[in-house]
């Protein structure tokens, strides 16, 4: 893949952009297939972005402080004319942050995207960061699976990230994940959410351990809808795809 994204559907321009979560490798959009399929069915061209790849590259070249601005520059072309900017986990946070740079986008969808890092999220991610900083990828992925599963539940296959053991890829996976989580620790999207003039939808799992109703970028109100997905953890599109998609479809109809 020459560019760190994938374009689905007909049409040359993407009408929807989906920013992916922190992951060890790009899964070609499997993380959001239920959403992208639905959007393609609506006639959207859908751009699925390997967010950690861009973040890692920008963080190395410019430093974390300039990643959001750099991401906006990278997306300005492919995302021009988009009517929906969506993101998953870190991608959700970034979707809201990008509102400042892409104000013409009329809808933003943040799926399990923390608006800022509160004390609970910082505590939750601390062991994972320690494992990554020690280069313990396998351990980090186990911790990630435990963190994204609903509270009190053992992680299932839908919570684990498949990752091969090809030579050299482990180091890249660690770099991607470290860059993504380090960026997340620096982000606070509350000011952008407050100034955004379009429609905002946030989805959080009722039993999510990381993104919660408490650390969203906004509180519900006019033009700001927050939906809790019953029984779900971080991966709401996998824990309860029917409920999550009903909420998204209903919002798109408003």
């Amino acid at each position: 893949m020459s560019e760190p994204w994938l374009l689905l559907g007909d049409g040359e321009a993407a009408r929807a952009v989906i920013l992916g979560p922190v992951s060890p490798s790009f899964d070609d959009g499997a993380f959001c297939s239920v959403l992208s399929d639905a959007l393609v069915g609506r006639g959207f061209g859908v751009l699925i972005v390997d967010t950690p790849a861009i973040v890692e590259s920008l963080a190395s070249a410019r430093g974390l402080a300039h990643v959001v601005e750099g991401l906006a520059e990278r997306l300005r072309g492919p995302a021009s004319g988009a009517s929906l900017l969506a993101g998953y986990a870190l991608g959700g946070t970034l979707a809201v942050k990008l509102a400042r740079y892409l104000p013409q986008v009329p809808r933003i969808l943040s799926i399990s995207g923390p608006g800022f890092v509160d004390a609970a999220l910082r505590r939750g991610l601390a062991p994972l960061m320690s494992a990554l900083e020690a280069g313990q990828l396998g351990h980090a992925l186990r911790l990630l699976a435990e963190s994204v599963a609903p509270l009190g539940q053992a992680p299932g296959a839908q919570h684990r990230d498949a990752f091969g053991s090809e030579s050299g890829l482990g180091e890249l996976a660690v770099r991607r994940m470290l860059a993504g989580f380090r960026l997340l620790f620096e982000l606070d999207a509350r000011a952008e959410a407050a100034s955004y003039e379009g429609e905002l939808l946030g989805l959080v799992g009722e039993l999510s351990q990381l993104a919660t109703a408490e650390n969203q970028a906004f509180t519900p109100g006019p033009h700001r809808r927050l939906v809790s997905v019953p029984g779900a953890g971080m991966r709401v599109l996998r824990d309860d795809p029917e409920f999550a998609m009903r909420a998204i479809e209903a919002w798109l109809e408003t």
Binding site: R190, A191, A193, A194, E214, T219, G221, P222, R224
Partner: peptide, 13 residues
């Protein structure tokens, strides 16, 4: 602030 449509801050918090 909220009454003026500026909702950056969490009144609940």
């Amino acid at each position: 602030c909220r009454s003026e449509g500026f909702e950056k801050y969490s009144l609940e918090s």
